[in-house]
């Protein structure tokens, strides 16, 4: 996603466009969850962080001032929430106490690390671009026109010389595809080592 495109999405969200928001959600929620889970090491907590971020994004959409790209902004929100959680010494009434505290401490430092943050932020945005690139051709055109350039369905239909119905079905397909397609990266991205 180019910066201009990403900014269009932000612009639409600011206007209260729920579809634009849904796109953002589908594009980023999974990977933000991966980050939160990796550092917090708790599924429920990670899910809560992601949900909170999007709720606050939507609630404060009118006052958003986002410099740079959306991924960078969302990453910073996840990072800050996670750091807040890891910083808080939570009381655990169990033997796992010390181990958990130590783990939180090293993960706090790991998430604070500038270079690590840079890597996470870069990759977050890159992976979204890749997912978009993998969409089937017409689907991609429709997706980019509507979501990124901010055209409504009718304008998109006119510009691509297809019916509004077709635009709608392509959009549904695109969002579904984005989700399913993410699996393909499994093969492209081998684990470390």
């Amino acid at each position: 996603m180019t910066q201009a495109n990403s900014n269009n999405l932000i612009y639409l969200v600011k206007q209260g466009d729920e579809r634009a928001f849904e796109t953002l959600y589908h594009l980023y929620a999974n990977n933000l969850f991966v980050i939160a889970k990796s550092y917090l090491r708790d599924d429920y907590l990670a899910e809560e962080v992601v949900q909170d971020i999007f709720i606050s994004l939507w609630d404060r959409r009118k006052d958003l001032h986002i410099r740079g790209n959306m991924g960078g902004y969302l990453f910073k929100m996840v990072k800050n929430r996670c750091l807040d959680i890891l910083r808080k010494p939570r009381k655990l009434v169990s033997m796992e106490d010390e181990a958990t505290l130590l783990e939180n401490k090293i993960n706090f430092k790991a998430l604070q690390d500038k270079e690590a943050s840079f890597l996470l932020e870069e990759e977050l945005e890159k992976r979204i671009e890749e997912a978009v690139a993998l969409l089937p051709k017409t689907c991609k055109k429709v997706f980019l026109k509507t979501k990124m350039d901010g055209l409504n369905y009718k304008q998109t239909a006119e510009e691509l010389h297809i019916s509004v119905k077709t635009v709608e079905s392509h959009m549904t397909k695109a969002l579904k595809h984005m989700r399913l397609h993410l699996r393909e990266f499994l093969s492209c991205f081998s684990l470390i080592g």
């Binding site: 849904e22 999974n30 899910e47 992976r127 993410l182 990266f185 470390i192």
Partner: peptide
């Protein structure tokens, strides 16, 4: 820090979250 970030990144784009479910909750 580095290895952790790298491992985290390797988990990207692998469905880990039921996005549909939590979106509907939102």
């Amino acid at each position: 820090n580095f290895l952790k970030a790298q491992h985290t990144v390797s988990g990207f784009n692998r469905p880990a979250l039921d996005v549909e479910k939590i979106y509907s909750r939102w």
